[in-house]
């Protein structure tokens, strides 16, 4: 088997605040092959976005810092890369789309200028060529009459269209990896489906791998081949999407599935099961398993020892003492 496109090992990204050290990412291991889609799921504040920003090396220093671990991308350790090396990778080999399409475009520049800029940053093409390719990108992401739309400012477009523009920008240099940080969260449901469909289609065409960050398991089921479930800074369960949906093992993953509303009439109507409690304060993490206070199956060992990522069958891995 060829080496994976992206391999993260033991990644730790901490924020050194006045109140103390926030362990936003506390030992994440991930790997992603070329052309695959990996969904990273978890509730707000579990470290999904920080993981993504760590890969891009966009953690705002000196408050935040990658303290440990390695991020291997195309055989290069990004943690050790210099800023100018990273600038050549960002947008070119790895690109990112953000949650808020309303604010992720510069309000005072034409969308065409912004896409052209992304192209010209990495490719030696004339302004005219870049502009023509911007029109092409807009057509590719399904914006009607791109020749005139390219001259518009972001405020003249809807949220869904802006997200399309962002996707166009992110894919303009045919990156090997695209990180999508909750790309559909800020959009309404009908547009969400269109955007997911677009991402899936373009992925095939451009041949990028996708790291999809979301809190929506439905979105994961739609587009991902593999899923990592994150909780309080680390991965608690990792599996291919079918295995994970069929047999979730970690009590947290099980809880996540139980908290999805069931189809009406499919079974007897029952109360929605929520996971009790809140995500622990990242400043005061408990000893042992981080999920212990919310876990229905907690036992003595969970309170004493932090669980390791245990291999089940195939690629399925789980961080829970129940399965040792």
């Amino acid at each position: 088997m060829a080496a994976p496109l992206l391999e993260i090992q033991g990644l730790k990204t901490f924020f050194f605040t006045r109140k103390g050290v926030v362990k936003a990412v506390d030992g994440v291991d991930l790997s992603l092959n070329e052309g695959e889609t990996l969904g990273l799921v978890g509730e707000s504040g579990c470290g999904k976005t920080v993981t993504a920003l760590s890969i891009m090396r966009l953690i705002s220093e000196p408050i935040g810092r990658i303290t440990e671990g390695s991020i291997n991308f195309e055989g290069k350790d990004l943690v050790a890369a210099t800023e100018s090396e990273m600038r050549k990778i960002r947008g070119n080999r790895i690109s990112m789309i953000f949650q808020e399409p309303m604010t992720s475009l510069n309000p005072v520049l034409k969308v065409g200028d912004q896409i052209s800029e992304a192209i010209q940053l990495h490719q030696d093409v004339s302004k005219k060529e870049a502009w023509d390719r911007s029109i092409e990108m807009l057509r590719l992401v399904g914006i009607p009459s791109p020749e005139s739309r390219v001259n518009e400012y972001p405020h003249q477009m809807s949220g869904g269209m802006r997200q399309r523009v962002m996707i166009g920008m992110a894919l303009s240099c045919h990156p090997k990896l695209m990180i999508a940080d909750e790309p559909t969260t800020a959009l309404d449901v009908t547009i969400q489906a269109q955007i997911l469909d677009l991402i899936n289609r373009l992925k095939e065409r451009v041949g990028s791998a996708i790291l999809l960050i979301t809190h929506n398991l439905g979105v994961v089921a739609e587009v991902a081949q593999y899923v990592g479930v994150m909780y309080a800074g680390y991965i608690v369960e990792y599996a291919d999407v079918i295995t994970l949906f069929k047999e979730p093992r970690h009590p947290y993953t099980v809880g996540l599935f139980q908290s999805i509303p069931k189809k009406k009439g499919s079974a007897k109507r029952e109360r929605l099961q929520a996971i009790p409690g809140l995500v622990p304060d990242l400043l005061e993490l408990p000893k042992g398993c981080k999920f212990q206070d919310r876990c229905s199956r907690v036992f003595q060992r969970c309170r004493e020892e932090a669980p390791l990522l245990l291999k089940l069958n195939g690629s399925h891995q789980v961080r829970c003492w129940l399965y040792e």
């Binding site: 891009m56 966009l58 600038r87 050549k88 990778i89 960002r90 947008g91 070119n92 690109s95 990112m96 953000f98 992720s104 475009l105 510069n106 800029e117 992304a118 940053l121 990495h122 962002m166 920008m169 992110a170």
Partner: peptide, 8 residues
Amino acid sequence: QAVRSLGG
């Protein structure tokens, strides 16, 4: 952040 993520 977006410009930075594109390599600016």
